[in-house]
Design a protein around this nucleic acid. Structure first.
Lengths: 210, 210
DNA sequence: GCCCCGATTGAACAGCGGTTTAGTCTTTGA
DNA sequence: TCAAAGACTAAACCGCTGTTCAATCGGGGC
């Protein structure tokens, strides 16, 4: 079907150039004209919405273990994706641009991370947290955010091959510091944590809650 | 001076709306016309360059302890900035858009983080790392990246007041998980780290280096 | 007093973006 | 076979952008 070809071309283009990509470029990639795109999707925003639901569908169905709960694991496994790199890139662009899919995507990743972390805790591999949801959200934002920062810093188009190879390079660079942090932490003593726990149990101002 | 007023208005506008903001909007904010802006700065890119060097100057002179090396510290201290919030927001936009200032800024933050971490190690508060530079870069990317992700997810303009208050809220949400991670780590045993260290000492393929 | 130079403006220009429209071509169904 | 419906195109339209240009205004030097 032509509409699907347009949608796939749009996913590729949007991933490569961001959502500032023009309809004419997408149409040319799909071998059609700009008018046909809006004929099928109503508008550029309609096209984006169609891409959103499709990508979310693909990711949802293929995320058998797409997230392990740890940022290093996320990135490493993202790097292994060959076939689904376009959808991963498109998702990153969605986060970069904001909007519904971007928010839905990170919310889903936060929820998944919490599930996997809880499983790790039950299996005796991961330390329990005083705020499991907060920890999951924290780790997810840090992991996906660093990825987003990396992509944002390189201005201009992001080629799929570059995406894959650079992702692997990043994964290699990150693995050691992440493993260090995850096994031994950063601080040598618990004074800062204890002070904070004391502070939130009797806060001078009632802003944070335990 | 009028040129300085234009520059300041541009820093505010760019921070609020991103670099897609129009010259006419900036000019209106400064009480002048679009023509005068290019008369003074040559082009929109010239205006952005001028904002870049000025913001970098301000940040450099005022970063007495703008970074502590830890993501939680970064964000918390960024949140305390009242006067320099526009410059912090502009820097975030620079990272979002890529370009020279964005890269220069994170590189500087990585270097600073390494310095502060080393100081913490010398003071006996922070654990030494097998790859201090890599750890500093890792922590910087995670911390700034999560901030960038937060800003990217909210589409539309970012008001200065929202920026400050939301930054504080984020800081409160993050502090506990970060302190937990920094004191105890995430894993209960060292098996994953030991396996990796064994792996990099005799890699099956020569990609990562110890 | 005059003149020149920089600041400043308003309008116009050129290009690109999404969208619209009129028209052609292809398929389909009775 | 014919006509209606939808796929598809080419061109135009319109709003927005950064940029240019001619003209005007306002002081400072000779």
């Amino acid at each position: 079907m032509t509409a699907e070809r347009i949608r796939d071309a749009a996913i590729l283009r949007f991933g490569r150039d961001g959502f500032a990509a023009g309809l004419r470029a997408i149409a040319a990639d799909a071998g059609v004209t700009a008018g046909l795109v809006v004929h099928h999707f109503g508008s550029k925003d309609g096209l984006r919405k169609a891409c959103d639901v499709y990508v979310l569908e693909v990711i949802r169905s293929e995320k058998t273990k797409a997230t392990t709960g740890s940022p290093a694991g996320m990135i490493a496994q993202l790097a292994e994706i060959e076939e689904y790199a376009p959808h991963a890139l498109y998702s990153l662009r969605s986060m970069q641009a904001g909007g519904e899919l971007g928010n839905a995507f990170v919310e889903q990743m936060c929820a998944d991370a919490e599930t996997y972390l809880e499983a790790g805790v039950q299996a005796g591999m991961i330390r329990p947290s005083r705020d499991p949801a907060g920890r999951a959200r924290y780790l997810t934002y840090q992991g996906m955010g660093s990825l987003l920062l990396w992509m944002s810093l390189r201005q201009g188009p992001v080629e799929l091959d570059d995406f894959r190879t650079e992702l692997r390079r990043l994964s290699n660079e990150i693995t050691l510091p992440a493993l260090e942090l995850f096994t031994d932490g950063l601080f040598v003593d618990r004074s800062m944590l204890d002070e904070y726990l004391l502070y939130v149990s009797d806060p001078p101002d009632g802003s944070p809650k335990p």
